[in-house]
């Protein structure tokens, strides 16, 4: 399931809803992304996330479908927020559920790596020196590339 929303989410309630009524599920993996108070060496007082409505949902659904093709998942969830957020606020939740832990953990890692390089979101930071756009990190591309190497 995909959700793109301005409002916060309740991690406990989301994870409970994800597995409810499915006793086949033996493990749930989750990743929660938070707003950090540092960007490079500067203090960040707030972050604003902009996205491309329509394409965001399309890309997230494609990424989720790809994870379900690669691993035997019983359930998956991606929630991504947009708008203005402050340090400590939740940005994203990725959760995957499977009969065994390996598939859930790997699929969760895959989803957050791919989401960072494929989903059309852009961050701008507020610092004491003013507003600035966050630049892409080469490490993020490398993290996604790892999943394209066939073993």
């Amino acid at each position: 399931m995909i959700r793109v929303q301005r409002e916060d989410f309740d991690v406990g309630a989301e994870l409970e809803a994800l597995t409810k009524g499915n006793p086949r599920i033996g493990g749930v993996a989750s990743f929660i992304g938070l707003v950090r108070d540092m960007g490079g060496s500067d203090r960040v007082t707030a972050l604003t996330l902009e996205h491309y409505p329509g394409m965001t949902e399309k890309k997230l659904a494609e990424i989720e479908a790809e994870a379900n093709k690669r691993w035997p998942l019983d359930a998956s969830l991606i929630i991504h927020r947009y708008g203005r957020l402050e340090p400590g606020d939740r940005i994203v939740l990725v959760a995957t559920a499977s009969p065994h832990r390996e598939a859930a953990l790997a699929a969760c890692h895959f989803l957050i790596d791919w989401l960072k390089t494929d989903a059309p979101f852009w961050k701008s930071e507020e610092t004491p020196e003013g507003k600035r756009w966050v630049e892409k990190r080469a490490e993020d591309d490398a993290a996604t590339q790892r999943w394209t190497i066939k073993s």
Binding site: H51, Y52, H80, I91, I112, K116, T117, P120, F121, W122
Partner: peptide, 10 residues
């Protein structure tokens, strides 16, 4: 047609 910088979500 959408034109934008590299994405920085997540």
């Amino acid at each position: 047609i959408a034109i934008f910088p590299p994405v920085t979500g997540g």
